[in-house]
Amino acid sequence: MADHSHSHDDHPPFNHPAPIPLLIGVFLALVFLTILTLVTSDIELAQFAFPIAMVIATAKAALVCAFFMHMFWDKSFNVLFFLSSLLFVTLFIGMTLLDTGQYQDDIDSFPREPEATPVVAEQ
């Protein structure tokens, strides 16, 4: 174990280096997706703009997770735990969202500070 030869043979079972061409390929794909999301944000897509941006972001996130973060080779327990955190975030956002919509008017009509300057038409 003590020798410092770098052959792949002495890699212990928990050591799986990711192939370098794959890593570079993933990076290029990420750059491409970034440019894509910039381009789509310039096009008038109305209500689809946001979902498209999120889909692209999620694709990028998936690439980073799978290859840069070695999830592809990792123990499924680790992956499961990590991904289940997203479930809890969804729950947090979902339940809160379900509620807060119903009392927005009360918040909007609450007196603000500093008092808004009344806007006058005349200059």
Binding site: H6, H8, H11, N15, H16, P17, A18, I20, L23, I24, V26, F27, L30, V64, F67, F68, H70
Partner: peptide
Amino acid sequence: SLTMALGVHAAQN
């Protein structure tokens, strides 16, 4: 992130 992944690769070797 790419260079980090490459750094991990180097350390693994």
